[in-house]
Amino acid sequence: MKEYQPIGVFDSGYGGLTVLKEIVAKLPEYDYLYLGDNARAPYGPRSFETVYQYTLECVEWFFKQGCSLVVLACNTASAKALRTIQQNDLPKLDGSKRVLGVIRPTTEIIGNFTKTNEIGILGTNGTVQSNSYPIEIAKFYPDIKVHQEAAPTWVPLVENNEYDTPGADYFVEKHIRNLLAQSQNIDTILLACTHYPLLIDKIKKYVPEKLSIVSQGKIVADSLSDYLERHSEIESKCSKGGKISFYTTDSTQDFDNHAAVFFGKPVKSTHLHL
């Protein structure tokens, strides 16, 4: 029997489960290991150095569990930690392993959604302040103009199960209004945080119908599928048993209750002390 070598999926909390859900739907045959660093969430307001240190600790844990491939299903971690881990830490830890993020797959195809060449980004403070999206989009689509708006209240709304309440409308409308006020030509809005899909019904209320709203789950799943097809040296190491294991650094009861909403089915987690 092949050694257990799951694909690792990491997030600061629950949001990455919206990505894992799409990955499992696309690639159900693989084993997966999910870790939510809920005890130290949210990552959005934290410094680059802190997010990097936390993310690196979690990546090292994944490697110790046998993962040859880890997906940072967290925009803040992808923005603030991925490049340093790829360039500085991977060669020292294990040059045969890989860590991927959610920003690159999204920026590679975002140009397919816009006709005006003006897009809006909604994300956490950390993602917006990093400027990762404008920088990466410019590499693939130098003619696209990017407008950004940080929506720091949206993650707490989602994590506290307030995303479907009347109180959420104020904060959703406020940030969409701020974003769209930057240009009348924005025709595409990217939800650059994996929590935000849970607010999609509220978001649609305040976004004109003619605008495209882009979530990342399916994009990342398609990109991962393509990556595994192109990198047989990594794909061959990933075990295929259809098993999914969940870990959290905080309360398993809280995690399981919230995670079921994000993942779309019941979740049973194990506590991890880092």
Rank of each mutant, 00 (worst) to 15 (best):
A25Q: 09
K26P: 00
K26A: 10
K26H: 14
K26C: 02
K26S: 10
Y30L: 04
D31P: 02
Y34V: 05
Y34L: 07
L35G: 05
G36Q: 06
D37T: 12
N38V: 11
N38Y: 00
A39V: 14
R40W: 01
A41E: 02
A41F: 00
P42Y: 00
P42T: 03
Y43R: 03
Y43F: 10
Y43E: 01
R46G: 01
R46N: 01
S47F: 00
F48D: 09
T50M: 05
Y52M: 05
Q53K: 15
Q53T: 12
Q53G: 07
Y54F: 12
E57V: 03
E57G: 15
C58T: 02
C58N: 15
V59W: 15
V59R: 13
E60G: 11
W61Q: 12
W61P: 01
F63M: 08
K64Q: 15
K64C: 08
K64N: 08
K64P: 09
G66Q: 12
C67P: 02
L69Q: 10
L69A: 09
L72S: 09
N75I: 09
A77V: 03
A77K: 11
S78K: 03
S78A: 13
S78I: 10
A79K: 08
A81V: 09
A81P: 11
L82Q: 05
R83I: 05
T84G: 09
T84I: 14
I85R: 12
I85Y: 10
I85T: 13
Q86G: 07
Q87M: 14
Q87H: 14
Q87A: 10
N88S: 14
N88W: 03
D89P: 09
P91N: 12
P91R: 13
P91C: 13
K92L: 14
K92M: 01
L93D: 08
L93C: 12
L93N: 13
L93Q: 05
L93S: 06
D94P: 05
G95V: 09
S96T: 14
K97F: 04
K97R: 15
K97G: 11
R98D: 03
V99I: 03
V99P: 04
V99M: 01
G101C: 11
V102G: 01
V102P: 00
P105Q: 04
T106F: 02
T106H: 02
T107P: 04
T107N: 13
T107S: 14
E108I: 00
I110A: 14
G111T: 13
N112A: 13
K115F: 11
K115P: 08
T116H: 11
T116D: 11
N117R: 15
N117Y: 09
N117V: 06
G120W: 07
G120Q: 05
G120R: 02
I121H: 08
G123M: 07
T124K: 07
G126M: 14
T127I: 03
T127V: 09
T127Q: 03
V128Q: 00
Q129H: 14
S130I: 04
S130W: 08
N131G: 15
S132W: 02
S132D: 11
S132R: 05
S132F: 07
Y133A: 01
Y133L: 01
Y133E: 00
P134D: 06
I135T: 12
I135D: 12
I135H: 08
E136C: 07
E136A: 11
I137W: 10
I137L: 10
I137S: 06
A138G: 06
F140S: 04
F140K: 00
Y141N: 00
Y141A: 06
Y141W: 05
